[in-house]
Design a protein around this nucleic acid. Sequence first.
DNA 1: ACCTAGCACGCACCA
DNA 2: TCCCTCGGCG
DNA 3: TGGTGCGTGCTACGCCGAGGG
Length: 562
Amino acid sequence: MLRFSTDPLANPFYYLDYLDYLLDFVACRYQKLLHPREQEYLINFQYLPKDARALYARLLQRKGNYFRVDRLEYREIEDLDRAIEDLIAQQFLSSIKGQRPDLDVRLRTKAELAKLGALEALNLKKASRGEIDEAVLLKNYPLPFLPIIQLERVGLFELCQYLFFGNRHQNISEFITADLGIFRYETVDLESAQAFDDRSLVDACRLVDHMRGWAALLDKESRKLNRDPDTERTTALAAGLRTLTAMVPVPEDTRNSLLLRGLDKLHLALGQVHERLGLIPEALSCYQHTERAPARERCARLLLKQNQYPEARVVCEQILQHSVDPHERAYASRQLSGPKRTGEASETRRFTTERLILALTEGPSVEQQVINYLSSQNQLAQHTENHLYPGLFGLFFWDIIFAPIAGAFHHPFTRQPADLFEPDFVRCRSDLFRLRFDELSSSRFRAATLAQNWHAKKGLSNPFVAWHSLELDTLEYVVDHTPWPALKAIFERLLSQLQTFRSGFPDLLCMTAEGYRLIEVKGPGDRLQSHQTAWLNFLADLGIPTTVMHIEALIETSGKSG
DNA sequence: ACCTAGCACGCACCA
DNA sequence: TCCCTCGGCG
DNA sequence: TGGTGCGTGCTACGCCGAGGG
Ligand SMILES: [Mn+2]
Ligand SMILES: [Mn+2]
């Protein structure tokens, strides 16, 4: 693995080691994807003095692009002014000199503005921060010079980061949290690892990511406008939404799943905002660009709203034919089964249902209170929910999940292979899976693999294994008390669509000497969700005792009235 | 994949 | 005055 | 009354301190 030290005493420039590693990694593997100008800037950067590179690395990790020089305090950087000069000379920083009066206000604290008399002069003693910024700027209140620098070339470093991680949310701090052991990652083979091999694809992915960011902003704005309406802002939002929607690219290379996944989510997000604004036809056309759930369901609902019954019916039939998403399927079958009658569920329930009256208290969760109750009845229960069978899956198939398939891993901080939730994840590893299923039919192999991987991998990130909420004993107990055909069927269902079927498992595992049962707790007002019903039925069909426990609050009859 | 995903909860609306 | 959020940090 | 739809909030490293209310 990587040899780093995050100890600032022993290695004051530890964070620069990380940036250097990342840039070097990118320069080696992605040189062909970088434009000549970009390569040039990266070389210039590496030739800068250490202080300058360190300052840049520090600022790159901070929020925003503008910084007050008088507020910079980094002990390891000996000559700050020199570092700033060097960075400015190579255009990695620029100096803001009076061109941005808004920054002169925004980067000062309220206390500072008060001391300068701005608040008193403009009657802003009780104003909020936002009002102050606006008013001081508007009134052009004279403020003394404030040295401010602007971070430049941010886009280039974002590009490098994107090439390294293959996503927008991981950054240099991964190096630190990993080195400190806060997150631990499986070691993966990075010999020929490349996240991208085509610049236009990188640009497309980054564009889609940016657009999703804007879509998220519009989403937030539309929620706000739903709460307190404002016609002017609604018009502006609709215009922005139209513009953004018109900009959505049509992918040239439809084989790249990273891009397609981003586009799917973008279409869904835009459709939802349109819906919230009541722009039904526009929402429909967004949803029609993707088959990712719940796009088809939203289509059906909107068509119904427009009284286009035959069209809605067709979409529902498509859902039942092509979608595995339990929510979509439940909706579609409800619609197609005609006018609903009470008590008639779309899918017959094969699990049992119980009622339990408890004196519910404030603090602990309903699930915990049921565990306490069961414990008072001498029954041992744990809140395992989505961690039990997926956890077993993760441990039994660990080496297959992290198998060195081409393109699956491209940096050292990988939680999961890039194609984990793609439809052909299993197909690309079909021999491995076939063999493993064979091996697992031996109870001895199951026991050995479970314990072995538990100890060998303990603490390493795996999307299916929640180390903190599980114990080996519990897993061994469940493996011992589940017939292999049932376990196999659960794994196969999981594998049929990992993203969809990794959730919806019952809350509690309740263990006795003879065997276990699974309990989904439903507090007052809580209801079964479609994917929960689907798993409950599936598990019950396998002969695993499965119960929904509806909790009713014990009403206190004595005490104060009212 | 914290620029998410899964879960519970609360309220409105309907027959 | 306290309390809360958020950003910086290892 | 139960069945729905839909919005919200919580939680994910944890500590510390500045800033704001
Ligand atoms: Mn639950
Ligand atoms: Mn529950």
